[in-house]
Write a protein that binds this DNA or RNA. Structure first.
Lengths: 143, 143
DNA sequence: CATCCAAATTAGAATAATTCTAAACTATTG
DNA sequence: CAATAGTTTAGAATTATTCTAATTTGGATG
């Protein structure tokens, strides 16, 4: 079973069409880098670096544009755990995160493994958009 | 009952002594701004602004230094909910947050009101430093 | 398939939050 | 009250991100 078995898109082209985004050379390449190898957590700089390594000519501005468009289209989720650095998560299903404070690495936790038993109601006039659970861990020998 | 009844320090001086930080004019003033009126969530810029309004001469660099020293001493907790902006929370007890995405405001949720029933174990060699639960809400008329 | 135009890309400048640096100041200690 | 280690500071530097205005391109149209 391939890593992307659960993904409903056969390829980058279909995915972009479904998101109503023109399949440009840059977006096609970034789509493949993002979704062709299982769930990932990348920063814009990292993805830009990967593109360069793969000889895909794309500017950092376009990487930022694309990541935000993908978030808007529900293809990515932005994870905020570190002040001044955004991670983009290819897993948009129900799940939470371990965050390794020492290394800055993120790891998914399936939604079912965290039992949020009880939640207070959203304040009047508002509704819940998302509940983030972040388990911050550190190596035993640090701090 | 005053808002700070639960705080174990009678005044700014004691608090700084306990944290082993020299009670300088700047730190004393910032301590009062932070802790003299109940639980708060402030950014460095906000606190700097309040100091200026109160005619306390203190540089932004010192505000940052002080906030981080207070976090290190366990007097404050840094809350990360917004990429590129850090909030400092005077409530260091067990609690979680509502985050109003539209306004950028934070609101405490007492720890007991969120039932995190079940947590996966920390990966080998690591231990849990903290569990953050952030409930992101939006006004019903936006997005 | 040539033309057109809105959408997309881009380099580089601009912004925002934060950190750094090195010099000047100050609280404590003897 | 002098010495000194800790603290503050202005301003420069850094980092991540966004903006701008000009150029390029995908895809529809004739």
């Amino acid at each position: 079973m391939p890593a992307n078995a659960a993904r409903p898109y056969a390829n980058a082209l279909e995915l972009l069409r479904a998101a109503k985004l023109r399949p440009t050379r840059q977006r096609l390449a970034l789509t493949r880098l993002l979704f062709d190898k299982g769930n990932r957590h990348v920063t814009a700089e990292q993805l830009h670096g990967e593109a360069q390594t793969a000889s895909v000519r794309v500017s950092l501005a376009t990487v930022y544009n694309t990541l935000h468009q993908f978030v808007g289209a529900g293809l990515l989720r932005e994870v905020v755990v570190d002040p001044g650095r955004s991670y983009f998560d290819t897993n948009v299903g129900n799940h939470h995160h371990f965050y390794f404070e020492d290394s800055g690495r993120l790891q998914d936790i399936p939604g079912e493994r965290v039992g949020v038993a009880e939640l207070p109601p959203a304040p009047a006039g508002t509704s819940i958009r998302r509940v983030d659970v972040i388990i911050r861990v550190g190596t035993d020998r640090s701090r």
